[in-house]
Design a binder for these strands. Structure first.
Lengths: 189, 189
DNA sequence: GAAAACATTTGTCATTTGGCAAAAAGCGAT
DNA sequence: ATCGCTTTTTGCCAAATGACAAATGTTTTC
């Protein structure tokens, strides 16, 4: 739980009472590799915080190809914002890539905290907007880079993740085929 | 000015007095085609709202290639968030693609509004997070699509923009070369 | 530990895209 | 209309990537 508190306190100050309110609503959740935290077609009703493991957000395109939109590892929030905030069906799956340990909040508890703790909304907004900006900064460069550069950039930026995810997921994240990725890896050695 | 108010009121309610406070801080700004609204290496100190025209955010990659990160057209906010919020040097240029008319707020006025108008911060947060989510939803699919699909998707989603921007900018947005784009356009006819 | 299931690499070939340079088309100023 | 400038299209060829199938390697299950 300490990890969550430290994470939150990066974005603003809270007194001990407020922290207790938050931790009081938090529950632990374990998700096995390959299981889903939330699914396309369902409304997302919880916010998670990754204590341990790697998760991914993915969807299927028109051709039925699986696309990995992003990876989420330790000490990051995991939530399908669009679905959670607007109570609409999600279009993406959130899946555990490895066995994962999470802290989760139900939507009702989360909203209660927003109404109860002064300044909590500001902290939440900061967390969310930083997370959204990160997602853009990660995804956007991939559009203009060639496949080899994409792979090298990924290695450089996320060395901690690369050994923990199947190459097929990485390929679907980088927007290349699995065999291309394999060839690229061979050429780099 | 009406456009701005309508835009804002989509995200929350404000009374007339509050609206007057906001409009009182707003100033008009015209930017000629190709001129910059903000530049890399400088700290961004204003928030804009596009009344008329198309703008783009761009930067230069390691090889010196110009990359267009996104286009912004009428009734959207234009601001380099990272730079504006944290008072750090921007890494991107915000440039007028056509002659543009904007409403702008200085950073100090913007912050004064945040401190003066109750609920304004919530509205701003909503505007910003929607805008960030849009950026991701626009940019992300480009990673996994082939060049022709990228072009067709762009046409479909932004038919109003396509005739107003140079093809070189569009190519740099789609992550393909200008000649590839030209060939794709030929094949589609 | 063998079989089955899954993940990764490799081979072959077709297709797409890039790089570069030249031609053509479009546009504004005179 | 013409010149000069910029934008867009083309042509040519090389390089990168995709599609598909088979082979190899790895992990899981019984």
């Amino acid at each position: 739980m300490k990890e969550l508190i430290n994470f939150i306190l990066q974005f603003g100050n809270l007194n001990q009472q407020q922290i207790d309110l938050i931790t009081g609503k938090a529950t632990h959740l374990e998700i096995k590799k390959d299981d889903y935290f939330s699914e396309a077609g369902k409304v997302s009703v919880q916010v998670g915080f990754v204590l341990d493991g790697v998760m991914r957000v993915c969807y299927y395109d028109k051709k039925g190809e699986e696309i990995t939109k992003y990876f989420i590892d330790e000490n990051n929030l995991v939530v399908d914002l669009e679905s959670f905030q607007n109570s609409i069906c999600s279009s993406a799956y959130v899946q555990a890539v490895t066995d994962c340990k999470l802290i989760v909040f139900s939507k009702s508890d989360w909203e209660e905290l927003l109404n109860t703790i002064i300044g909590w909304d500001t902290i939440v907004h900061k967390i969310i907007s930083r997370s959204l900006m990160q997602k853009i900064e990660r995804r956007s460069p991939l559009v203009s880079e060639d496949a080899t550069t994409r792979y090298l950039s990924f290695m450089e930026k996320y060395p901690k993740i690369i050994n923990r995810i199947p190459l097929s997921y990485l390929a679907s994240y980088l927007g290349i085929t699995q065999s291309s990725l394999s060839r690229i890896r061979k050429n780099i050695r």
